[in-house]
Nucleic acid binder design. Structure first.
Lengths: 198, 198
DNA sequence: GTCTATAGAGAGATAGAC
DNA sequence: GTCTATCTCTCTATAGAC
């Protein structure tokens, strides 16, 4: 089910389709020919826009996917009445997206990150930058909401680990049960930290 | 760094090497030629023992990896003075293995599971069986240790999600910081559940 | 810049000698 | 059963016409 991209510019169509295929099929499992075909773009355009080939394309996919996911987090958490509600809403939304896409779309970078961690250093590094970006954002939010300073970062890492682990379990089990369990766990952890007086 | 397998039978050498390469490089990223070369086995032997080819081999790798990891869990948790200590020891051991292998060896099935969830139904199904096996074991342990019955399974899923997410973050960030954070979170969650009187 | 054709390497799989 | 040679297909990448 190729998502419609109407008449977006060639470069954008390739980038969008790459992101979709990489997060679903992985880096090695996605062919550049499949990308250009599904994006309805000429094969040569890919090397015109990304002279560094597959690796350069994947790096941009990882970074833009990371930025997109952070923006999604902001869009959900910032309007929420409090951080606890925002975190729960984010996990709930993740579960809803899984169901809506038939368990195809979960984390924008996880599948590739797992593949490349031990094999493609530039891509591992890009994935690390993304995880670090998310961790910093959640750490700041937790500290701002009143979590003890030394607990904020470990708690942020644990919440992101819960989310990533739940994504993998949900996609594999084709069920949102793990996401529901992770949501409750994340909320419980955050609540405890926020109730602790520094 | 091919792990030594001395003079193990050909079939075992191929299986062992496949497990190593699949969990590090993923399914699509690992070639059968690379497997047989590193296993010092003739290429044809692979199709002799696994007539179903790469997919059949990967399925056996997933299932034996799942059994192995459960046995490792049992070996750590059963002798522990209590479940809380056992869970902490398991997370600690996971972190130590990551460091000892230079962040190469984490979960035996996660990298492949993430790749195949949307692309290879027989392998997704095998991965699901493994996660279900682990979940059932931890659920039973939690219930036996005194967690309220309706909390045991969601808690087991959350702990496994924490572990899987931490594996991904640690491999990507090349740091055990996420595993330490996940360990504390898992212990806190389990402790709270065990302190709750049914 | 857009697009096609193809090069060169490597994949998974198989045939068949021994 | 063990092992080698090779088949066919697909991959990434590039050359070059337009």
């Amino acid at each position: 089910m190729p998502t419609t991209q109407a008449q977006a510019p060639t470069r954008d169509r390739i980038l969008f389709t790459s992101a979709e295929l990489f997060r679903r099929q992985g880096y090695a499992g996605t062919g550049l020919k499949q990308v250009t075909t599904q994006a309805e773009a000429p094969f040569g355009s890919l090397y015109h826009f990304w002279p560094g080939g597959k690796e350069q394309l994947a790096e941009e996919v990882l970074r833009t996917g990371g930025d997109f996911f952070l923006a999604l987090y902001r869009a959900i958490v910032d309007p929420a009445p409090d951080l606890l509600t925002g975190v729960r809403d984010f996990f709930t939304g993740a579960g809803e997206t899984l169901v809506a896409t038939g368990y195809l779309d979960a984390c924008p970078i996880a599948t590739v990150a797992g593949e490349v961690a031990s094999t493609h250093e530039p891509l591992r590094s890009a994935s690390a930058d993304v995880f670090e970006l998310w961790t910093a954002a959640l750490t700041a939010d937790l500290a701002h909401a009143g979590a003890p300073e030394e607990q904020a970062r470990p708690l942020a890492l644990a919440v992101i680990a819960l989310l990533e682990g739940a994504f993998l379990l949900c996609r594999t089990l084709q069920s949102t049960e793990p996401m529901d369990a992770a949501a409750d766990a994340a909320v419980a952890l955050v609540r405890t930290a926020l109730e602790t007086q520094p």
